[in-house]
Every structure is written in structure tokens, then in C-alpha cells.
Design a protein around this nucleic acid. Sequence first.
DNA 1: ACCCTATTCAACCGATCTCTTAATCAAGCA
DNA 2: TGCTTGATTAAGAGATCGGTTGAATAGGGT
Lengths: 114, 114
Amino acid sequence: MENDNLSLTFAALADPTRRAILARLAEGEATVNVLAEPFDMSLQAVSQHLKVLERAGLITRGRSAQWRPCRIEMAPLDDAAAWIGQYRAVWRDRFDLLDQEIRKIRQQKGDDRG
Amino acid sequence: MENDNLSLTFAALADPTRRAILARLAEGEATVNVLAEPFDMSLQAVSQHLKVLERAGLITRGRSAQWRPCRIEMAPLDDAAAWIGQYRAVWRDRFDLLDQEIRKIRQQKGDDRG
DNA sequence: ACCCTATTCAACCGATCTCTTAATCAAGCA
DNA sequence: TGCTTGATTAAGAGATCGGTTGAATAGGGT
């Protein structure tokens, strides 16, 4: 449920239109028509983008009369950020270790400043 | 160059195999053969995954004899994390505003606690 | 009832993705 | 010169993506 959803999330974020939709939704809820307005694209295409975002859990939708207001959801973004952060942390630790090694070697060579 | 690269980066991260490759590379450089070993997949397929990662700037490759050691690069991951963080910040600010509004309304109603 | 608006569903098309196998390139070694 | 190893390129199959148009659904308003 987690790894798969990471794939769905990153795949959803890979499209500029969908990122723009999320950017708009970060400012507040919006209907499909409102979301579609800035794009040179059919309403149906936007609707399909929303379905992709919904499947990734990045948005949820209510119903009020014939409108389907979309709301951004943070959980998948949190997961994505956590995944990236995790490997950045591993990488940083590796650099720290490398740094220690370099210092050690310099000390052994009696070199206090490279 | 930035927006397009975000798309390339997220698209690259959308594949579990490529995420696993990055996870391995976070521990240190590795050759294509070494990277391919854990996967039930041809060497060529892994090579193609590496090309995707390279095009996104997520890895760079050296040459030492017939080996092509792969190294992870943090810059695109930083960009991706920054993009996500940006909208999480917008969202948090929105909640803060909403929170203030709720407090204001409660105060107007003479209600000092839920 | 009828119509209007908001949205989705369905079918299709061309492009791209991910894998395969076969062929090719690059570098070291007999 | 050939042989072997490491890796890439090329071509193709099958699935998915991102868009289109046309028809259907959902929920008012008159």
C-alpha cells in the first residue's frame, strides 16, 4: 500500500498540468470548471487529470449539487517528501563518514590543513 | 530548464525499480552489473532505467576501463523536495488563517473554549 | 415535464513507457 | 589479431498515457 502509492504519487506529480492543478488547490477548494479554466485543453482532459490525482490520494472530492469541489490532501505529499528526505539523509551521512576518513588520513600524514 | 526537469525527476521517481536503484546508490557508487543484480530483469532494462535517471540528472556516470560507475546526484532531489515543501507551506499557512478565523468567531460568540 | 449546467463515461488515436532479444561498441588481455 | 567482459544501442511487442469527440449522468431552475 505504501510503495505502490509512492509510485502513483510521483507519477501524478510528473505532469505539469497536474502540478499546476495542485498549486491552485493549495490556495483552496475549486470545482472542475474553475480548475480547467487556465488550461488550453478540454474539460474532459482536466477531469481525467483529476482522476489520476484522486487515485494517488492527492485530492479528495465532495459533492454539492452538481459541483464536485476538489480538495488537496497532504498525506501523499508527506510520504513523497519523506522518501526523498530519507535518501538525502543517507547521502549526507555518507559524506560525513567520508569527511571523517579524509580528516583521519590527513592527521596520519601529519597534515593539519590540506 | 526547471519545470521540465521537475517533470523528468518525478517521472523517474515514479518507477519502483528506479527508486530501488537510487536507494542502492545512496550507499555508494556502483556499476550497472552490480545495480542489476537484485532485479529479475535483463541488464539492458536496467541500463535503460539508468538512462532515464541520467536524463533527469539524478545520477552521473564516470568511466573506468569498461565499467561505468553510477553516482547519485542530490540537486534534482532537492528541487523535488523544494516543490513539495512549497505547497505544503502554502497549505499550512491556509490552515493557520483558518484557525485564526475560527478563534475570531469563537471570541465574537463569547466562547473561550470549544 | 423540460432545459441548463457541471461533470463523468466511453471509445479512439498517436505518443511514450518498459520490457524483450539481437547486434554493436569499448576496453583490456591472450 | 582475436577473445572476453561490461555496457549501450536498435528494433519491436504490449501496456499505459494524455489528449480528443460524442454520449450519458446528476442535480437544480422554470
